[in-house]
Design a protein around this nucleic acid. Structure first.
Length: 889
RNA sequence: GGGCGAAUAGCUCAGUUGGUUUAGAGCGCCUGCCUUACAAGCAGGAAGUCGGGGGUUCGAAUCCCUCUUCGCCCACCA
């Protein structure tokens, strides 16, 4: 006999259960098992991150999938690890350095600073992986990787060199996005658009011939000292006469020409555009097209302050870009050079790490030519080799790949993979050598200087599905576990990560990294805002684990996340968000308590029980268990995790606990007749339920598994998924037991309606509508009596006429004599209302059946079904009418 | 400017290929119960013109068009 506490206490068991899994080594993937592999690689969290709800959701989903496939018999590998997160991590350490020591990274120097970051990573990093254990993540911890560990670095280096040799990595001089706070370049994806209220200033450029001025509209007056021309559209009649003339940049003596360009939008502003090649990527292209690629005056530096050059008026030099702008506008106004100023809203790019407005910056950077890589990935998507769930994200992926641009991969940071390139310092040479190891010297004999830059973090992330398996070495892990299967991540990193992994997988290994990309939603608060540290609206998953248990967290995450939809959590009311999962766990716990308290050793399996020993209820629950197994399996296969969850939920609660456990109780006491059959069905059904629920709520199911008597796999996490046993599917038993349920429900309804005291028994008479109904009621007579508190369920009409009537869905009628408790008029009204409801339904179905186009065109089975409905409802109505007559209504 | 998504009960959401749905769940609400597994529970109940309009169909929450509101993504009109 096992003693379980009356309430489930997650905290009391979770850590020991997790340890049990580790001891059993069920999470460790075995290359040599001979089983078909199933692989998920974790989206590596930033090494210094702490777990937030987004991780909670994302990793729960992965764990459900990996546990399901593991139980299905696949060799499941969930590969964990962390990302060095270049800018993010460097920023954290720089901030600490500044706050605690008042120093900048330059004060330490590169080597010492990088050492500091390593110290930080080694002491504080990796916490998040332990936190994942708290939510039950079944990762193969023996294969944990870090994007900056030695082997991984080798892979990154290899990729860079290979792409360089293929001609796909090159060094370019152009205008890129520059974050003046992080002091590094950014890729297009890292410079996010945000709308901003600003002004459109109309500035007068005086014509040098003294014939007046030309007006130009701009949002960035501070860049005008870098102008090299004004251009208008060649077909622009209004400005045609100006072509060839020159103007002076306001506040300076710099003379620039007026030219034409088809890139100009005639309708915008004044139709005249200032061309500033060093401070605007489009202008850079326009100037190139005009053949003015040698003249790119720089007037704003990498700190976003005005440069100290002749082109910039002295009063402005050294001012930051915002102050300069204000000052320039004042000066223009004073000089009568500002024609007008209007409010204007436009999208400004900001650094995705620090939100600073990005500055277009002319510089030397490393780029990847992406078009050739995209081609293969696109083909794969279109051929169905990689699919997205929900499907619509595939289109997003496709569009981006179709219009892909070159990827700036160099960052002016210290923390990251240093670019394996060396520059010859000899004048006249300028050679660049890309190599894995430092070359002794340049072929010209000049000394070499290593490239200062590091690679974009995502340049290492895109190798994650194979670099984690040992690539470029031909490891057995790589052979065995690549290609992988499912990727679970957020749609916000489709471009950053997902698309690039697909491109990388095909380019470097000639195969997809995974076949399915499942995009989960975003966790939002009660106002539907994304949960974030900066808004302070986050819910701490560990607090939830602490208060409600990991299984409750998981249950609510999964049930609330229909494929790809956002999950809304009320940050002010955790009960509203997590009580359902906790309560469900407690329900399961108590079902187990009841069962375990009534077992004396292991019962036989249902297959060993003489079939004649099974009662209707036994056959019913065994059949329902099969149907549930099938539904849950199908839902999980189709990634309908929420449906799978609610299917088990309702099976356990509404069928097993509410009906079967109640039905079976009398047979559980001692050596009651039929005890073996009852225990066999009960334990086998409970066993199935634990298995089906395990991927979703692993802790409690594992703990209860431990108590179940009988021969079983030692740990549930390593146990097999239930097979549907069709011999137990019994439609007849299901139909019959449902009749019993409806009879019980009808009597309970009458009791409640007439306020019969819970302890008081009533009498009841049932008039079955069919032989099936009659024999079913007879078979479960005592169940109905017990559950509806009936003393003497009879099949004949009783002597009384005063009582309450109800009609069951199949047309069977039940009568509960209540004597004085009944108000005849009220009962008449109630029956009349019932009849009205049926009349409405009958009206609808009759109209349908009288419609020839329906009977002719709809499938026969649909028509039959409608006929069946009509007949049943008509019978029910007739029965009610008869009851009314007998009451004398 | 282009594209995508959402709108179903007071709240948060399901609803798979159009027909077993008389539109469901959890929470909340109302009534009655500490009934020996569970008050984190039990029994019963109220509550929705499926955002508006039009269309396709024998049949629409589901497909099409359109409008409204909200959200997201992409985009070189400075």
């Amino acid at each position: 006999m096992t003693e379980l506490a009356p309430q489930y206490d997650p905290a009391a068991i979770e850590s020991t259960v997790y340890q049990r899994w580790l001891d059993a080594e069920v999470f460790t993937a075995d290359r040599d098992s001979g089983r078909e592999p199933y692989v998920i690689v974790i989206p590596p969290p930033n090494v210094t991150d702490i777990l937030h709800m987004g991780h909670g959701l994302n990793n729960t989903l992965q764990d459900v999938m990996i546990r399901f496939e593991r139980m299905r018999g696949r060799e499941a590998l969930w590969l964990p690890g962390t990302d060095h997160a270049g800018i993010a991590t460097q920023n954290v350490v720089e901030r600490t350095l500044r706050d605690e020591e008042g120093k900048a990274r330059q004060d330490l120097g590169r080597a010492a600073f990088v050492e500091r970051v390593w110290d930080h990573v080694n002491s504080k990093g990796g916490t998040i992986l332990d936190q994942l254990k708290a939510i039950g993540a079944s990762c193969d911890w023996s294969r944990t990787r870090f994007t900056l560990d030695e082997e991984y670095s080798a892979a990154v280096k290899r990729v860079f060199i290979k792409l360089y040799e293929d001609g796909l990595v090159y060094r370019g001089h152009r205008v890129i996005h520059w974050c003046p706070r992080c002091m590094t370049s950014l890729s297009d994806e890292e410079a996010e658009f945000h709308d901003r209220e600003t002004r459109l200033w109309h500035i007068r450029y005086p014509l040098t011939d003294g014939s007046g001025h030309v007006t130009v509209a701009t949002t960035r007056p501070e860049t005008m000292f870098g102008d090299v021309a004004l251009v208008h559209h060649p077909d622009d009649e209004n400005h045609r006469a100006l072509t060839g003339k020159t103007v002076r940049i306001p506040l300076t003596d710099v003379e620039i020409p007026i030219d034409v360009s088809t890139a100009v939008e005639r309708e915008f502003g004044t139709g005249m555009l200032k061309v500033t090649p060093a401070h605007d990527a489009n202008d850079f292209d326009i100037a190139n097209a005009m053949g003015r690629d040698l003249d790119r005056p720089v007037v704003i530096d990498e700190h976003a302050t005005m440069v100290d050059t002749e082109r910039v008026p002295e009063a402005l030099r050294g001012l930051d870009r915002d102050k300069a702008r204000t000052r320039i506008v004042e000066l223009l106004q004073a000089g009568g050079l500002l024609e007008k100023e209007e409010p204007y809203q436009h999208a400004v790019r900001r650094c995705y790490r620090c939100d600073t407005v990005v500055e277009p910056h002319l510089s030397h950077q490393w780029f990847v030519n992406m078009k050739p890589l995209a081609k293969r990935a696109l083909q794969a998507y279109r051929d169905g080799e990689v699919r997205f769930i929900p499907e619509r994200w595939g289109k997003v992926f496709e569009n981006w790949l179709t219009e892909i641009r070159d990827w700036n991969i160099s960052r002016q940071l210290w923390w990251g993979h240093r670019i394996p390139a060396w520059h010859c310092e000899a004048e006249e040479c300028g050679k660049i050598i890309v190599a894995a190891d430092e070359p002794a010297a340049c072929s010209c004999g000049g000394t070499l200087r290593r490239d200062e830059d590091v690679l974009d973090t995502w340049f290492s992330s895109w190798l994650w599905p194979f670099a984690t398996l040992g690539w470029p070495e031909e490891t057995s892990d790589l052979k065995h576990f690549y290609p992988g299967h499912t990727l679970v991540t957020g749609p916000d990193i489709i471009f950053f990560w997902v698309a690039r992994m697909i491109m990388g997988g095909y380019h470097f290994l000639g195969d997809r990294p995974f076949d399915t990309v499942y995009l989960n939603g975003i966790v939002r608060d009660s106002l539907h805002r994304k949960m974030s540290k900066s808004l302070g609206n986050g819910v701490d998953p560990l607090e939830v684990v602490d208060r409600y248990g990991a299984d409750a967290l998981r249950y609510n995450m999964v049930v609330g996340a229909a494929a790809g939809t956002d999950v809304i959590l009320d940050e002010r009311d955790l009960d509203a968000a997590f009580a359902a999962g906790r309560n469900f766990g407690n329900k399961l716990w108590n079902v187990a308590r009841l069962i375990l308290a009534n077992l004396d050793g292991a019962p036989p399996s249902p297959g060993d029980v003489d079939a004649s020993q099974f009662e209707l209820a036994d056959r019913w629950i065994l059949s329902r268990a099969q149907r549930t197994t099938r539904a849950v399996t199908e839902h999980l296969h189709a990634f309908r995790l929420n449906e799978a969850t609610s299917t088990v939920y309702h099976f356990l609660w509404d069928e097993l606990a509410d009906w079967y456990v109640e039905q079976v109780k009398p047979r559980l006491h001692g050596n009651a007749p039929g005890a073996d059959a009852a225990r066999a069905a009960l334990v086998s059904t409970f066993d199935t339920t634990l298995r089906l629920l395990h991927p979703i709520m692993p802790f409690i199911t594992e703990e209860l598994w431990n108590y179940l008597p009988g021969e079983r796999e030692p740990v549930l996490a390593g146990a097999s998924w239930p097979e549907e046993e069709t011999e137990y599917i019994d439609a007849d038993a299901e139909e019959r037991f449902e009749l019993v349920q409806s009879l019980t429900g009808a009597i309970r309804g009458i009791r409640a309606e007439y306020g019969v005291k819970p302890g008081k028994t009533v009498r009841a008479a049932v008039e079955p509508a069919s032989d099936i109904a009659r024999s079913s009621f007879e078979a479960e007579r005592s169940t109905v009596e017990r559950l509806a508190k009936v003393e003497g369920l009879v099949f004949d009409s009783p002597d009384e006429t005063v009582g309450a009537h109800a009609v069951l869905p199949d047309g069977s009628a039940v009568f509960v004599p209540l004597g004085d408790a009944i108000d005849v008029n009220a009962e008449c009204d109630r029956l009349a209302r019932e009849m009205q409801r049926l009349d409405k339904q009958l009206h609808r179905v009759t109209a349908k059946l009288e419609n020839e186009s329906f009977t002719k065109r709809a499938p026969a089975e649909v028509v039959d079904r409608e006929r069946q409905k009509e007949q049943t409802w008509r019978e029910q109505r007739d029965t009610l009418a008869a009851k009314r007559r007998s009451l004398g209504c």
